[in-house]
């Protein structure tokens, strides 16, 4: 939806409680455009640095573009504190398990599907570990109509990287990908490296999946993050355009 200055815009945003993996009650941040809708919807999988201000801003951003958007706190079970403190705890614990994340993201999708003002079409977006998690959720569930993986590391995993929390390389699940995929990557990134993105793309082709990959020169990991030195203005602006064009194509 193209915003014009003659529009009356309103967004309602608040922390909500939803059911996640194993039926656990977890908190989530929900932002929705005001009005009757029906609106398309988005689930945001936050990055490894946590359920932080950046992801609240992303939640507002998608709502501004017309999407009912929910960002579940994937670290809820780690306890509470500042997002950085909680994320540091998860870092020390080797991250959150794939089963927990997929259960929470699936729960978020079900939460959105129950809303009377949503149109039933749901996309999933994530950056960094959230990109990997978005891809996992799109492979392991059939809840989503579009998936967006922004520089998700460890989509391609070697056997020595597999462990109890991450027992399967997401690449191996590609045959089960249940919706179109948008991939946004920086060519200077090392996780995922351009070679790993090549591997991912080859697997998608092998299984005749619908996908778009956009790879940016002069950008590395996290180039949407305006608070970090990794930010690359031109590449980020183009990337966001690709994100919203993809959402409009598959969720309207």
């Amino acid at each position: 939806m193209q915003y014009t200055t003659d529009m009356n815009e309103g967004i309602h945003a608040e922390t909500v409680t939803m059911l996640g993996a194993n039926g656990d009650r977890i908190n989530a941040f929900l932002a929705r455009p005001l009005g009757d809708g029906p609106f398309p919807a988005m689930v945001l999988a936050h990055h490894m640095p946590g359920w932080d201000l950046l992801y609240r801003e992303f939640t507002y951003k998608f709502a501004h573009h017309g999407y009912v958007t929910i960002s579940p706190n994937l670290y809820f079970r780690a306890g509470h504190g500042t997002p950085e403190d909680v994320a540091a705890k998860m870092r020390a614990e080797g991250g959150v398990s794939d089963d927990s994340v997929v259960g929470d993201l699936e729960g978020a999708a079900k939460y959105l599907k129950a809303l009377t003002y949503a149109n039933g079409k749901i996309g999933i977006f994530g950056t960094c570990s959230g990109g990997r998690h978005a891809y996992l959720a799109a492979c392991r569930t059939s809840e989503f109509n579009a998936a967006i993986d922004c520089w998700g590391g460890r989509v391609v995993m070697t056997p020595d990287q597999l462990n109890e929390k991450t027992p399967v390389s997401p690449l191996a699940l590609t045959k089960d990908l249940s919706c179109p995929l948008l991939g946004i990557f920086g060519n200077d990134d090392t996780a995922p490296s351009p070679e790993q993105v090549d591997q991912h793309e080859a697997e998608l082709k092998k299984h005749n999946k619908t996908y778009e990959f956009h790879r940016y020169d002069g950008a590395g990991h996290g180039f949407f993050y305006y608070t970090r030195p990794a930010y690359r203005q031109a590449q980020a602006m183009d990337g966001w355009e690709k994100v919203f064009a993809f959402c409009e194509k598959y969720l309207s």
């Binding site: 504190g81 950085e84 403190d85 540091a88 705890k89 870092r91 020390a92």
Partner: peptide
């Protein structure tokens, strides 16, 4: 190189980073 000095029994906020 990140060092977090912690006491897990006091919750995530008991951290010097």
């Amino acid at each position: 190189l990140n060092i977090d000095f912690v006491n897990a029994s006091q919750g995530p906020s008991a951290r010097v980073a």
